[in-house]
């Protein structure tokens, strides 16, 4: 659709497709299909009495079309707004640590209570930093945990137990 970038050197010498557009487009197609198929399992109804599945099915279909357009854009030179931007490697390990930290919090906060969960969460998160040693991460985690307990428990009086059921709190 955004046709301001045309391939100059003819059909025979097309540059390689622009990867980020292919990925983004594919993601939209997959998500669109998922919502459309999921939506079609609910009562779709008619235009007069739209059922629960009508809107998800229609929007899912639209997302598939848009995803295909994005893929097409990738074959026609790529999205000009990010084409020339340098992309750094994906920080898999650091990102993974952050996700692990948040998941840990979600899984254990009710069982272990706010204090211990927060310490472990911030420790795992801090380990994602550039050049952070375990000792430094532990110190950071201790400081942040103390700060959060003061702010959220003492000042804002959130009803979160400091120690969870598993620890007899």
């Amino acid at each position: 659709m955004s046709t301001d970038h045309t391939v100059v050197d003819g059909a025979g010498h097309r540059p390689a497709p622009f990867r980020p557009d292919l990925y983004a487009g594919a993601a939209f197609v997959v998500l669109g299909l998922a919502f459309a198929i999921g939506g079609s399992r609910y009562d779709v109804g008619s235009a007069l009495r739209m059922g629960s599945g009508y809107v998800p099915l229609a929007l899912g279909g639209l997302l598939v079309v848009l995803g295909l357009l994005v893929v097409a854009m990738g074959f026609r030179g790529g999205d000009p707004s990010i084409r020339d931007v340098q992309r750094e490697p994906i920080p898999w390990r650091r990102g993974g640590l952050l996700v692990a930290a948040i998941m840990f919090f979600g899984f254990f906060v009710s069982g272990l209570g706010l204090g211990p969960t927060l310490f472990v969460t911030t420790f795992i998160a801090a380990m994602a930093g550039h050049g952070t040693s375990p000792l430094k991460a532990a110190l950071t985690a201790a400081g942040i945990t103390a700060l959060c307990l003061v702010v959220f428990v003492a000042l804002l009086q959130l009803r979160l137990p400091l120690l969870g059921d598993w620890l007899g709190g």
């Binding site: 930290a101 906060v109 911030t122 950071t140 959060c148 959130l158 979160l160």
Partner: peptide
């Protein structure tokens, strides 16, 4: 290196405290 773990902690506590719901985290 100190700031982002704090943001992670704030975000987790904040979202959890709204509904005490792990799914929000």
């Amino acid at each position: 290196e100190v700031m982002f773990p704090a943001i992670i902690a704030f975000a987790s506590i904040g979202c959890y405290s709204l509904g005490l719901n792990s799914w929000d985290v």
